[in-house]
Write a protein that binds this DNA or RNA. Structure first.
Lengths: 218, 218
DNA sequence: CATCTATCTTGTCACTGTCTAGATTTTCCT
DNA sequence: AGGAAAATCTAGACAGTGACAAGATAGATG
C-alpha cells in the first residue's frame, strides 16, 4: 500500500493540526467526543462506528485499537455520562436550599436537566443494551450515581437505607418518579398533559418539584 | 429464474402447511408474530428484518409488500403493543376493588405487568425512534392508552383533567412513577434497592402499590 | 379462459462492524 | 545514537443488513 500522500503531508508540516499527522495524539478522547456528537445529531439508533471514525478524521479501523469494538466505545461513553449525571445534580444542589428535602428535589431536577440536555446519551446509559455494564469503569460510575441517590434519601429520612425497608422504598419511588419524568419528557410525552416545551424555566422547575416532592412527604 | 423446487412442492401438497405454499395466506400476521418473537429473543437492538422473514419462512424481500420497510413493521407492532398495554391494565382492574383509587393503582400494576412480560416491545413502544408515531394506527393506539390514564385520574379527583391544572399534574406524576418503575425494573435497576426478582408476586404488588399510591394521596 | 393484480423470490447496491495484514511512528533499551 | 519492539493507524476483505428493482407465480376478476 502507498501512504505517500499522508507521508508528504506530515513531513512538510510535521507539527500542524493533529488531524494531519499519522498518529493522532489523543485519538481516544477525540473518538469519545465524536461519538457523543454523532449520538446527539443522529440519535442512538443510527449510530455508526465508521461515521465516528470519519468525524474524527481517521480510518474506520482506527477505533479498534483504543476501544475493542463499538460496544467498548459506547461503554466508555456511558460511563462518562454517569459521571456527568452526578455533576448535573450537584450543580442544582449548589443552587438549592440546605435542608435535606430541598437537596433531594434539586438532585431530581439535575437528573432531568441532564436527560433534556443529552437525550441520546441518557438513552444509551439507561435503555440501551450496547454498553457492557460489567466493565468496572461503567459499573463504578453508575453505582456512584445510585449512591448519591441513596445518601440523599438517608438525609431525608434519617435512616440508613440498606437497613431500613421504608427508606429503600423511598429511594426507589423517588428515583422512579424522576426517571419516569425524564424519560417521558425526552420522548415528547409530556407535551399533551403539560404543554411542557412552552413553559418557562421557572414554571418547569416548580411543576417538576411539586411532582417529585409528593414522594418525599412522610 | 427457476422456481421449480417451490412449484413441485406446492403442487404435490397444495393444501399443506402454509409455509410450503408460494402464497402464504396470512403473511402480514405471521410477520408481526415473527417480529415480536425475534424482539423478545434477541432484543430490539439486534432486530433484523431478514431474520424476521426467515422465521416466517419467507424470502427477505417479502415483508416489503405488507409493510413498506422495517419502520412500517415496527410501527404496526408498536401499535399492537399499545392496545395490549391497555388490556393488561384492564385485567388488573377487573381483579381490583371498585373505588377510583384502587382502580388507578391496578392500572399502574397492569402497566408494569406489561413491561415485565414484554420488555423489548415496551422499549420499542416508548424509547425507540423506529416506529413512526405520525401513522394513525400507532398514534390512535397510544392516545387511547393515554386517555385511559386521563379518565382514571378524573375518577380519582372528580375533575375534568384538561380543565384542571392540578389534575394534569397528577396525571403526569402518576404516569411518571408507573413508567419509571417499569423502566427501571425492566433494566434490572430495581435489584439493588429492592431485590426485586426475589420477591413473591404479593410482595411485589404491595411494594409497587405503595410507591404508586403516594402520588394519588391528596 | 385470458388478463390483471397481488404476492413472493432473487439479485443487487450501499453501508455496517469486525478481522487481518501491512505501513508508519514512537518508545525503549543497550 | 541506533536498532529492535511496541503502539498506532490504514486499507482491504468478509458476512450481514435494509432497500430497491426485475421477474416469477398464484389468485381474482372479467
Amino acid at each position: 500500500m502507498n501512504y505517500g500522500k499522508h507521508m508528504t503531508a506530515s513531513k512538510t508540516a510535521s507539527r500542524r493540526a493533529s488531524k494531519d499527522r499519522y498518529h493522532h495524539g489523543d485519538l481516544k478522547m477525540a473518538l469519545l467526543r465524536a461519538a457523543e456528537a454523532e449520538l446527539a445529531e443522529n440519535g442512538i439508533e443510527s449510530f455508526s462506528l465508521r461515521a465516528v471514525a470519519k468525524r474524527a478524521g481517521v480510518s474506520h479501523g482506527a477505533p479498534a485499537h483504543h476501544f475493542k469494538d463499538a460496544k467498548g466505545l459506547l461503554t466508555a461513553l456511558a460511563a462518562s455520562g454517569f459521571r456527568r449525571l452526578v455533576e448535573a445534580q450537584e450543580i442544582r444542589q449548589a443552587e438549592a436550599g440546605g435542608d435535606a428535602h430541598a437537596q433531594q428535589i434539586a438532585a431530581g431536577l439535575g437528573y432531568i436537566d441532564f436527560a433534556l440536555e443529552n437525550p441520546a446519551l441518557f438513552r444509551l446509559m439507561f435503555t440501551s443494551e450496547k454498553p457492557d455494564r460489567t466493565v468496572p469503569d461503567l459499573g463504578d460510575a453508575s453505582i456512584a450515581a445510585y449512591e448519591k441517590l441513596q445518601s440523599g434519601v438517608r438525609s431525608v429520612v434519617g435512616e440508613n437505607p440498606p437497613d431500613d425497608p421504608g427508606a429503600m422504598k423511598l429511594i426507589m419511588a423517588s428515583w422512579a418518579t424522576a426517571h419516569g419524568l425524564a424519560d417521558l419528557i425526552v420522548s415528547g410525552r409530556a407535551e399533551r398533559p403539560l404543554n411542557f416545551s412552552n413553559l418557562s424555566k421557572k414554571e418547569r422547575d416548580a411543576l417538576l418539584s411539586e411532582m417529585m416532592g409528593r414522594q418525599l412527604l412522610s
